[in-house]
Design a protein around this nucleic acid. Structure first.
Lengths: 162, 162
DNA sequence: TATTGTTATACTCTATAACTATA
DNA sequence: TATAGTTATAGAGTATAACAATA
C-alpha cells in the first residue's frame, strides 16, 4: 500500500515532499482552495467591517425584505443560535432593522436600512472585483464546471443525511 | 442594481428565497460545498479519533519519514504555533515519534510508529470510501476539472500574495 | 541575526442543550 | 406540543506576538 522512498529514514530539508497520497483525496484540494478563497474574501470585506456571513446575510435581507430570522438562518445554513449575533451586529450598525411581525409576536421581520442598501452595493462591487482576480486563471468551462460540481457536492449531503 | 420584488415589504414564509445575488459569487458555492465536505470527512474520521489535520499530518509523516516540524507545517499550510498541538496529539497517541536531529539540536525529525502505519492504512481506506460516495454525482470530467480548478485557485493566491 | 519549536492569546466558525415567550 | 428567538457553552480552525534554545 505504501510507496517506496528513496531515503527511508530522513528527508533532506530541500528535498521534495511526497504528497501523492494526499493528492489522491479531492477534499484535500477543496480545503486548500477554500482556505485561500476564505482569506482573500475576508481581506476584501475587512475595510467594510464585514465578515463573510454578515455580507451574505445583508445580501439576502436586501433581496428578500421582511424575512424572519429562522428562514434566513436556514437559507444560509447557519444554526439559529449562531445567527443571533450576526443579526445583532448588522442591527447595531444600523444596516438592518428588526421589525415585529404583527401576525406572530415571537418573530422578527428583517429589513435593510438605506445605509444597509448602500453598503450592499459597495461591498458587492468590491467582492466582484476580488473574484474576478481570484478566479482569473479559470476559463469559462472550468468556472461553469467548478460551480456545477460544487453544487452537486452540496446537494449530495442533503440527500445522504446521516 | 437591485431586482424588483413582488412583495416589497414582507416575504411569506413558504415563499422562495431569492439568492440570485449570492449565487453570482463562486465563493458562495465553495463555502457551502466545503462545509458539507468538512462535516462528512470529520464524521468519517471520528471513529479513528482523527481530525482532518491529524489525518493529513499522519499521511505526510508516513510518506516522508524524518521530516522536521517546520517543513511539515509549511507543506500543510498550517502556522507553526498551531502545529505543535497537532504533533503532540499524534505523539501522545504513539502514532509518531519526535526524534532529535543530530545535525541540528533545535529540530525534531518526525517518524511514524507501527501503530501509526496501521492507522494510516485503515483511515485512508475509510476516507476513500467516503469520497467515493460524496463525489459519486460527479462524472470523470467534472472531477478532473474540479481538481484542476481548485488547484488553480490555490496557486493563484500563492502568486498574488498581499 | 536568523531559525526551530514553543507558549500565550484572540478571533472566527460550527454545533448542541436548554431556556422564554409565544403559537 | 411545537416554534421563534435567545443564552450559554464547547470544540475546532486560523492568526500573530513573543520567548528560549540553538544555528
Amino acid at each position: 500500500m505504501k510507496k517506496p522512498h528513496s531515503s527511508p529514514q530522513a528527508a533532506a530539508d530541500d528535498e521534495h515532499i511526497d504528497d501523492t497520497t494526499l493528492r489522491g483525496f479531492t477534499g484535500y484540494y477543496m480545503k486548500r482552495a477554500w482556505n485561500v478563497t476564505r482569506a482573500d474574501l475576508a481581506a476584501t470585506l475587512q475595510p467594510f467591517e464585514l465578515r463573510m456571513i454578515t455580507f451574505s446575510t445583508l445580501i439576502l435581507i436586501v433581496d428578500n425584505p421582511g424575512l424572519r430570522q429562522s428562514r434566513l438562518a436556514k437559507a444560509l445554513a447557519v444554526e439559529r443560535p449562531n445567527f443571533v449575533a450576526i443579526i445583532n451586529e448588522l442591527e447595531h450598525r444600523q444596516l438592518i432593522t428588526r421589525d415585529k411581525v404583527p401576525t406572530d409576536q415571537r418573530a422578527y421581520a428583517l429589513n435593510a436600512t438605506t445605509e444597509g442598501h448602500d453598503l450592499y452595493n459597495t461591498a458587492i462591487a468590491a467582492v466582484r472585483v476580488q473574484e474576478l482576480l481570484l478566479f482569473s486563471a479559470l476559463d469559462v468551462n472550468e468556472r461553469q464546471t467548478l460551480i456545477r460540481a460544487l453544487s452537486k457536492v452540496e446537494s449530495k449531503k442533503a440527500r445522504a443525511h446521516r
